[in-house]
Design a binder for these strands. Structure first.
Lengths: 195, 195
DNA sequence: TATTTTTTGAGAAAAATTTCACAAGAATAA
DNA sequence: TTATTCTTGTGAAATTTTTCTCAAAAAATA
């Protein structure tokens, strides 16, 4: 689904107004039927004999995915990855704005990174509740991920994206998504060794 | 599959020698049958009535996935994400060693990042061929990703992990894997808006 | 206007994945 | 030794996902 947005935004930039499922499929490297099924899932957006209107389709997808608005995020763990996330343009552009950055290292607290002052993690609840925070990003070392998650839960955050390479335990009403680059490299190693 | 490794390494650290598919499933948040099917795929590693020997299982999985050895990697694009990848301990620990870093920005060329001197991307072919490079990582802005991929293909690299949020075109014998964090945040936004 | 071409939407078919259910092997207890 | 308990490996069943196929709608052409 994210691929569709990526490709459609590219088309918009090239000022292409209409695209068929076949052409879109080519660029996304999937089957045309797949695309039609996916898009039909949230309404009839195509026009038979014509294709899909790029701009309308993009709006519809974004609305459907819930990214037609801003999502307030906070980040815990201002290491290398944390800094990369804080400076990442792409996220803010897509409406995922990292509003605050936390770390428990006294040497980092007070430092400014990409326009944010690094705050002590213990002040997370207090600080995060001043603003409605939707999503928490964890980029701590694995051994501190659970504590970061606990702080986030105490602040009432219901969505956690965990970049630390470890599982975390959360209450039932909290959604966790795991991101681990090593998995991609492992998958690559596997594919290269089984030609 | 990557989850299994993560959890098993945790168990190894806790010096737990044996684990049942049920317990492993619990920690990996999957179905026990799933685990047994997956593991049975590359041989009979369990012992009925007992479970799986953590250390043996880990070795077997790593062998099967092709990560029982080192993989030489290079990176193109020394921006924020590139720096985070260069400094990322996890990757090197898993045997994915980033041997060289390239960038086309004259201000970055010559700079040292995590023990690597940043080299001009035009010298990629020449430099990479001095050592057998297995995998190329792209962490450039999207508009430079294709060029980075071309350089990698010219150097004979057959596996590309693309962190830039754009599709790239490669010859048939090259494997590409796409990594895009925004997709994870999009998926989170979707799940939070459809409770 | 009628015919041909294009392309969607959706039901049917096919393929892949996940889960169930249980025989069989291994350990423990009686 | 024999019975009981545990837990794997695997064929069958269920579910999900993907692909195929084609009627129907829209545009282009004659």
């Amino acid at each position: 689904m994210g691929v569709y947005i990526q490709v459609l935004e590219g088309l918009l930039l090239q000022e292409q107004q209409v695209i068929s499922s076949e052409k879109l499929a080519e660029q996304c490297e999937v089957n045309p039927s797949q695309i039609r099924k996916d898009l039909a899932y949230f309404g009839e957006f195509g026009v038979r004999g014509v294709g899909y209107y790029v701009s309308d389709l993009l709006k519809a997808i974004k609305y459907f995915l819930g990214i037609d608005r801003n999502w307030n995020c906070i980040l815990v763990g201002v290491g290398n990855l944390g800094r990369a996330l804080l400076r990442h343009q792409q996220l803010a552009q897509k409406g995922f704005q990292i509003q605050m950055a936390f770390d428990c290292d006294p040497f980092k607290i007070g430092e400014r990174v990409a326009g944010h002052e690094v705050i002590c993690t213990r002040r997370l609840k207090e600080k995060a509740q001043q603003m409605q925070i939707d999503i928490g990003l964890i980029s701590t070392p694995p051994e501190r991920a659970q504590r970061a998650a606990n702080h986030m839960m105490q602040a009432g955050i219901k969505g956690i994206v965990n970049f630390a390479p470890t599982r975390i335990n959360v209450s039932q009403d909290v959604i966790v998504d795991y991101v681990d680059f090593s998995n991609h490299l492992i998958s690559m190693a596997f594919r290269l060794s089984h030609p």
